[in-house]
Design a protein around this nucleic acid. Sequence first.
DNA 1: CAAAAAAGGGATGGTGTCACCCCTTTTTTT
DNA 2: AAAAAAAGGGGTGACACCATCCCTTTTTTG
Lengths: 209, 209
Amino acid sequence: MFRALVVEDQTLMRLALMNEVQASFEKCVVLGAETLTIATAELQNNHFDLVVIDPGLPGFDPTSQGDRVAVVDKIIEASPSAIHIVVTGSDNRCEADGFRQIGAAAYLGKTGLAPGVFSDVLDDISTKGFSLRLSRVVMTKPDYRFSVLTPREQEAIDMMAHRAPGVKRKEIFSLMADRLAIDANSAEKYYKQARAKLMRQGHPLPHGL
Amino acid sequence: MFRALVVEDQTLMRLALMNEVQASFEKCVVLGAETLTIATAELQNNHFDLVVIDPGLPGFDPTSQGDRVAVVDKIIEASPSAIHIVVTGSDNRCEADGFRQIGAAAYLGKTGLAPGVFSDVLDDISTKGFSLRLSRVVMTKPDYRFSVLTPREQEAIDMMAHRAPGVKRKEIFSLMADRLAIDANSAEKYYKQARAKLMRQGHPLPHGL
DNA sequence: CAAAAAAGGGATGGTGTCACCCCTTTTTTT
DNA sequence: AAAAAAAGGGGTGACACCATCCCTTTTTTG
């Protein structure tokens, strides 16, 4: 059974990261720790295959580079056989190098760390040994979330709204089919159904229909 | 139709906040903006009932109090009729007062901002006019997440694992029933089923069974 | 014009979760 | 010893979502 630990003080972020880990491993147990105290206690008593760390924890100075390194170093030394992924909001290449040197397998900026990226990071680690994803702004349009839509329908609207100009809808359906491992016709159906729902309720559709 | 906008650069956090907003309003549309540019563009073209803002946005200095106030002030001025909620990782009472003076209805620290808290915040706003929730560490034990469990089962395990010493299981079932608006017997059933699943797979159960 | 793409539907079975009901046996409490 | 709590099961209908296949009409494109 694959075992992972997420060390992050911000609750919603911790839960989101735990979701990402779960999505990357079919069968697994994921523990979430709010503080270094809880984390070290768990690391002493149990074995972990993967540890995700945000160095900005309560009780430490988030602006002190020494404190940040100390947190990560303590965790790495407490779980030498695990894969260690550092996730931070205030990321920079210099710090990334530092963490890499003390044994981290990945360094991720929170901005741009979207659902699904985690799996790519794990691929990077297993192929190249290290993954670096610095924060970068990627959005040009807002994301829309409609409570009337099912997840599949929401996803269909999402992908279609972010369609690059000139790209045919058919191509998006193929892409969606590929990403969700379903038939392109089904993807098309979801999009049409979602669109119909929004029209019926008089919603101002996101640009790009 | 209730319309909300979440302005936050960290993708996972933005999506989580959008989820929280959605969970608080039965029928709604929630938009997510990664940058102030996207947010202001939307605020110009559309009306919003609620705006959630993280002042630490790309292009601004997160340590500069002036920058942080400028971001929030610009958004409030662009949507004077909306409710404005400020969410930040580096929260302090002084800043809370500042944002309150320029018109924010709530000031929330990210640490301790858990699923469900958002609804309480909205209650605070409608009854007292303002809600203040500074970051504070609350966990003493880690959270467990098992991929084999359904959401209901996971929730049952969660609540039972955080049971205070001396509290009877029956009381937890009642609490769970109350929070999920289901029967206490059903809550008990979920817990038993969850426990059985974990035992069957040989999982080391969280302390407290 | 002809072909492709898009818009707009209807109907289908499978599956998982939800929420409820029932039962017995063992352990703990009082 | 009696009563309550806990452990451990089985079974049920409802319902939402998933995924697929089918159809027609309108619009756009080449």
